[in-house]
């Protein structure tokens, strides 16, 4: 398949992820949106990597997956800490730094 199709799919995936982060109140689902965004980026990396016949894109996608694992671990830990302190995972109620 032409690279263009893969790039459009990666846009769509990134957009869905962004919508999830912006619109959802549940912090867990916002984190899932971030994972979708990272996967959209990965897909673009791999598509261009095949287009150019260069394996560097694969290496960067590998790094992004490792980064996503670290991000998920720390993000979920923050969620657990938030839940301990405020008894909520609602992002609209986590306003401690606003005041």
């Amino acid at each position: 398949m032409p690279t263009t199709y893969y790039i459009v799919l990666s846009f769509v995936l990134f957009l869905i992820g962004t919508a999830g982060v912006l619109v959802r109140r549940n912090a867990l689902i916002a984190l899932m949106g971030i994972e979708l965004q990272l996967n959209g980026g990965n897909l673009a990396m791999l598509a261009f990597s095949r287009e150019l016949g260069d394996l560097k894109g694969h290496v960067f996608a590998f790094f992004i997956i490792a980064l996503a694992a670290a991000e998920a671990a720390v993000g979920l830990a923050i969620l657990v800490a938030l839940f301990r302190g405020r008894q909520t995972v609602n992002l609209d109620e986590a306003t401690l730094l606003k005041r």
Binding site: L9, L13, I16, G17, I29, G33, L36
Partner: peptide, 11 residues
């Protein structure tokens, strides 16, 4: 992929 991604953020 698109369907399940949309499903994820609307559940």
């Amino acid at each position: 992929t698109t369907f399940f991604a949309g499903f994820t953020i609307t559940r």
